[in-house]
């Protein structure tokens, strides 16, 4: 069983479980930039939440199913057609042999997720099939998919036909509110800067990848030159402030340590949204305490775990 890539769009990679347990050796997490959307797609094909699927950046991709299998689409808002017929996101769908899946350009959000009812065959490296492009490992030969690639799918099964409950469908509109906690270097910003960060919105620049997203415009920031910061651990969700003053939000493929001031940290329950930040979109920050943030995560986790077994958020 397999599917063939006709057009991968700007960047399509295999993403599944995050790499864990090796971060102290410099191995990034990888995995889906929006883990919640992959969890939801996997649920619709009765797969574990972290099973490997395809992450399609900006949509605009096309595939052919070489054998019958079920699949599901989640993530950014797109129009999808199966051999010319419009099909919805957030629903278990069935493809026949030869069916062509056409995913339109994203209307809102940044990444579309495609899960199939079987094991997508991809390179397992350090405990995960997720692609890490800078290191060239995981996924399909450690690279983004190309037209003509055939992805083998083993152990194809018949999933139950499901639809994501409305209230659990994340809604992406390119005008994102990110809840944050203060980072360890927050106090390096003067009071005026601290105010500006929350009063002004930011725009997502074109400098955006699975490693991180740059925000503009830069703001006037004068770090204490005397204090050179030794590299310190950073994680997906960390927001660093390089000297040019454009905040840089780290995503799944982010390096494990960084030397720029770490000013803010996106709270755990909002991190899935980072994968949907599209260049040109707007971002606004709202400050939360750690306790409040953790309670929000618990509420979200509880809501999703009633639908998905061990959801990855």
């Amino acid at each position: 069983m397999s599917l063939t890539v006709i057009n991968p769009g700007l960047q399509t990679t295999v993403q599944g479980r995050a790499r864990s347990g090796l971060r102290h050796f410099g191995v990034p997490a990888s995995g889906p930039a929006d883990a919640l959307s992959l969890s939801l797609a996997n649920k619709l094909v009765s797969a574990p939440a972290d099973q490997a699927g395809l992450e399609i950046t900006f949509g605009g991709a096309e595939f052919v199913f070489n054998q019958p299998m079920s699949f599901a689409i989640t993530g950014a808002a797109v129009e999808t057609k199966l051999s010319g017929q419009g099909v919805p996101s957030h629903k278990t769908l069935k493809a026949n042999a030869g069916d062509r899946l056409t995913i339109g350009p994203v209307r809102a959000g940044c990444r579309v997720y495609l899960s199939v009812s079987g094991q997508l065959q991809a390179d397992e490296f350090l405990g995960s099939r997720s692609t890490y492009l800078p290191g060239g490992f995981g996924g399909k030969d450690g690279r983004a998919l190309k037209a003509g690639d055939r992805l083998d799918v083993s152990e194809v099964y018949q999933p139950s036909e499901l639809e994501t409950p409305r209230e659990l469908r994340p809604y992406f509109n390119d005008n994102t509110v990110l809840q944050v906690c203060e980072g360890p270097d927050w106090s390096e910003l003067n009071a005026a800067c601290q105010t500006v960060v929350f009063e002004n919105g930011f725009q997502i620049s074109q400098r955006s990848s699975r490693m991180g997203v740059e925000l503009i415009p830069e703001f006037d920031f004068s770090p204490d030159e005397a204090r050179s910061k030794a590299s310190s651990p950073v994680f997906p969700g960390s927001i660093q402030l390089p000297p040019e003053g454009r905040p840089f939000v780290l995503l799944s493929d982010a390096q494990t340590t960084g030397g720029y001031p770490h000013i803010l940290q996106v709270i755990r329950s909002d991190r899935f949204q980072l994968g949907q930040l599209k260049p040109g979109g707007q971002v606004r920050f709202v400050l939360r305490t750690a306790q409040d943030a953790a309670e929000r995560m618990r509420i979200r986790y509880k809501a999703y775990s009633e639908w998905i077994d061990a959801p990855v958020i």
Partner: peptide
């Protein structure tokens, strides 16, 4: 713990 990562002068 999910991860224990060392920096140059700290550990997170």
């Amino acid at each position: 713990w999910l991860a224990v990562v060392d920096g140059i002068e700290d550990c997170v």
